[in-house]
Design a protein around this nucleic acid. Structure first.
Lengths: 342, 342
DNA sequence: CTGTTAGCGCATTCAA
DNA sequence: TTGAATGCGCTAACAG
């Protein structure tokens, strides 16, 4: 028969600490949650007592009682994809700075998985819910609107956000890339895109491409719009199709994933000169874009920064800096790094 | 004055569901945690009652009472790096299959951050703790050994694991790459590595390189071992240093991050022919390796699979499939994809 | 600055 | 198959 406090196995409670330090449990609680409300001498006794018995606060219990947890749940289309990973990295860093923890999962495997994952996360009573997808089932939207949990959508700037919305505009970005090529005299612009049925972002990018062409009075050629799965291999195959279609082609926009890099590799293998014959621009500025020959013109999207800002927003929600009833929408913008490929 | 159950705001408790379904709270509890112990008719009434008032189980409360949570905490050197992201993707997928949730954070920014992050995660009483780093402070090791939480190290196969250990051997892998080059007649083999002071894995890779050279009776030239930060730009700069050192050089091992790809780009810019003048091999088989010209010989490490296996191990811990006192060590191996670059 | 009381939502334990 | 009582570890609210 021994006291758990003696084990050091992480099973000690504030009660054990209190006994050892000769104070009440409430003072121990305060020592951890609001140290400056406890006398310095008392604090020191508590801290050493806690250290001696290996006390680990039980935040689940604290969250249950106080009604607020330190967890933030994020759902991205993929954990592995570098674009979303960059966002998560920023989010994680920003949350850590504010003493918050990140729980993350991915949802683009099955269409209803976002809904399931949200339900799962809600059981943890997270401080906030971050969604990188902006296309949801009607049930999901209805459910989230009824809920108390702050929701932040970050995948795109949208017209009817559930609540908060922090992003660049995929439509504007695609239009900017298209304009860039039009200004350089390109007219037969291929558009390599992710399947629009799978990604709301892909649809908005196509909108931007179309809008820019329309505004410039350039005819839209359906054959120049190619959908492809993500990844280098798929991008190369899609580019081969585009090149082999017999269509005139003087530029390619890689509008998703690593499409532009794949397109460059495919063009080089096919003996097409870049940028002389075909200009190539990338929707995302992967680190390698600037290192390739020719260096790829790319849209630079502050994905890491979006993560940081999201974390800041969430931290602000708890401090009254962000008003509860007011939904924030912020356009973080993007920049275009013009390089040799265009 | 209204009942929270009417709001649908996710604040309903099993008490509200119980009242509505005309059963006791205990039956509602069972309906969610062990549905097959509840009569079918009762179950249906409970489910519809729960649906009507928008009941969301409060897993924090359940975890507090039962002492087991559904959360698994993972600490990786970086969330953004594709290698660790691939592991996390596998881990996340595997955990989801078993109804477990992933909390993840990164630690390679500051030396003591792993310790802090572990402390943070322990407050959540996770089902298990997954560490991608195998080099820990003595305090961390001592603490983890005392704890009840299952610990799984996955960054490397090590001699003295804290508990479970699931990985390939970084040392063997580096030796395999070195052997591969030696067998092809290369003798002046450059070794592009991450700083060994920052990564235990980098140190073990260097060990493998040295061991292979030693075994083959090839002299180890310190000048051929170059440490560099990760990323393309740093890799290119490091390669330039190697090429400009005046040393004989007929091969380069990119022993970390995207070093081999950077080395290839640097060689091409410097007018060195690959593989005629210099062979290049990569420690990791990034998707682009096979697409480059020449295609890069690369070590294929089943990172996603390691994640899946880790999840399986954790799930097994709860079902008695894995004995509590027995530490599991598993070598998952690797394969070498020989391509044109060597 | 410190202590007392009560209860967050749920699952264990025992009883029916 | 179902229910009643109890308490997991902690913190809000109040009192001193």
């Amino acid at each position: 028969m021994h006291n758990p406090a003696d084990e050091g196995g992480g099973n000690a409670t504030i009660r054990d600490v209190a006994k050892r330090a000769g104070v009440s449990i409430m003072t121990v609680s305060r020592a951890f949650s609001a140290p400056n409300t406890v006398a310095a001498a008392t604090l020191m006794r508590i801290e050493s007592a806690a250290g001696e018995i290996g006390y680990v606060p039980h935040r689940l219990a604290g969250a249950l009682r106080s009604g607020v947890s330190r967890m933030v749940a994020a759902i991205v289309p993929s954990l592995e994809n570098s674009l979303f990973a960059a966002f998560l990295q920023g989010l994680s860093d920003g949350l850590a700075q504010n003493g918050l923890l990140l729980t993350a999962g991915d949802a683009e495997r099955r269409p209803d998985s976002e809904d399931r994952l949200i339900a799962e996360y809600l059981t943890l009573r997270p401080r906030a819910l971050v969604l990188h997808e902006t296309m949801h089932t009607p049930e999901t939207v209805a459910r989230l609107r009824r809920l108390d949990v702050p929701v932040i959508e970050v995948g795109d700037l949208v017209d009817d956000p559930i609540q908060h919305n922090l992003s660049f505009s995929n439509k504007d970005a695609a239009a900017a890339l298209t304009d860039h090529l039009l200004q350089r005299g390109r007219r037969q612009i291929g558009f390599l895109n992710l399947p629009t049925v799978l990604s709301a972002r892909a649809g908005r990018r196509l909108d931007g491409y179309r809008a820019a062409l329309h505004k410039a009075g350039v005819e839209i050629t359906p054959d120049l719009i190619v959908e492809s799965a993500g990844g280098y291999e798929a991008a190369i195959a899609a580019t081969d199709r585009l090149l082999g279609s017999g269509r005139q082609l003087d530029a390619i926009i890689g509008a998703g994933d690593v499409f532009a890099i794949g397109a460059l590799l495919a063009c080089q293998k096919a003996g097409r000169r870049v940028p002389e014959d075909i200009a190539i621009v990338s929707f995302d500025d992967h680190e390698i874009c600037a290192q390739l020959s020719p260096a790829l013109t790319a849209l630079s999207i502050p994905r890491r920064d979006i993560g940081l800002r999201t974390a800041k927003l969430i931290a602000g929600l708890g401090e009254g800096k962000v008003l509860p009833g007011v939904a924030i929408q912020e356009n973080v913008g993007f920049t275009l790094a013009a390089r040799a490929s265009s």
